[in-house]
Simulated assay, not measured.
Amino acid sequence: MKNLRKAKVSDAKLIFQILQQFAVEGILLPRSLNSIYENIRDFWVYEEDSHILGIGSLHIYWEDLAEIKSLAVLKKYQHKGIGKKIVEKCIEEAKELGVKRVFALTYVPQFFEKLGFKVVDKSQFPQKVWTECIHCVKFNDCHEVPVSLDLEGKVA
């Protein structure tokens, strides 16, 4: 059975393990297990036959801005539309919450562009820079590409 659902506290350790796989390769930034527990309500998980194959989160920054973070699909299951479904669910949730704009920082901007995101300048996200990026080990040598999707005027 395929299922896209909100994460549960019991999923935190597996979410951490999935993110660590990609962090070791430098594809995603690492997140602590503590951070995952603190933000568990942000996460969506995609599972098949009770196995989590993909994860992603929607983190609210301000009344008009949210970020899609920690998007990862196990390598064996990539290119099957799982990441797209997770992003679409995050966008749907953002619309329901009344968020006006969703962004992501990514090494794969083409993936997000296929979903309607546009590459933008990082200077558009001052809250992001000063809340998390400033503490990142890659802060002075960041190669992530910011992408943004305007949700205003779009019906949920």
Rank of each mutant, 00 (worst) to 15 (best):
H59W: 09
I82H: 04
G26E: 04
D150T: 13
F43P: 06
E93M: 04
C90D: 03
K76S: 01
I60V: 14
K6H: 11
K69Y: 03
V119M: 04
A94M: 14
F112Q: 08
L74P: 01
R101Q: 12
E48Q: 12
S70F: 02
K89L: 02
F16P: 02
S35W: 13
P30G: 11
L58K: 05
A104I: 13
K8I: 02
L29C: 06
A66E: 07
K6Y: 11
Y77I: 01
V73K: 02
S148C: 14
F22G: 00
K95R: 15
I60F: 06
P146Q: 12
K75Q: 02
G116Q: 12
K128G: 05
V9T: 10
R41F: 08
K2Q: 11
G116Y: 14
A94Q: 14
I68W: 01
K138I: 15
Y77M: 05
E152S: 10
E25V: 02
G153K: 00
D141L: 10
C142Q: 06
Q78L: 04
P109W: 04
Q110H: 05
F117H: 11
E144D: 10
H135Q: 10
I134L: 09
E113W: 08
S50H: 00
H143K: 15
I82S: 06
L74H: 04
E88N: 14
A12V: 08
I36W: 05
C142A: 07
Q127E: 13
K118I: 09
V137D: 01
A7E: 04
S57L: 00
S148D: 07
V108S: 10
A156H: 12
H135S: 09
I27D: 01
Q78T: 00
V87N: 06
I15G: 01
Y107T: 13
I55V: 14
I134T: 10
P109K: 02
I68Q: 00
Q17I: 01
F16Y: 15
G83V: 04
F111A: 01
Y107W: 11
F117C: 09
G98H: 11
T106G: 08
L71C: 06
Y37D: 07
C142N: 00
S32T: 15
I68M: 03
N39W: 00
R41H: 13
V145M: 05
G54L: 04
V155T: 13
Q21I: 13
E113F: 11
K2G: 02
E63N: 12
K75N: 01
I40F: 01
K95H: 14
W130P: 03
P109E: 07
D49V: 00
S123E: 14
V108I: 14
D141Y: 10
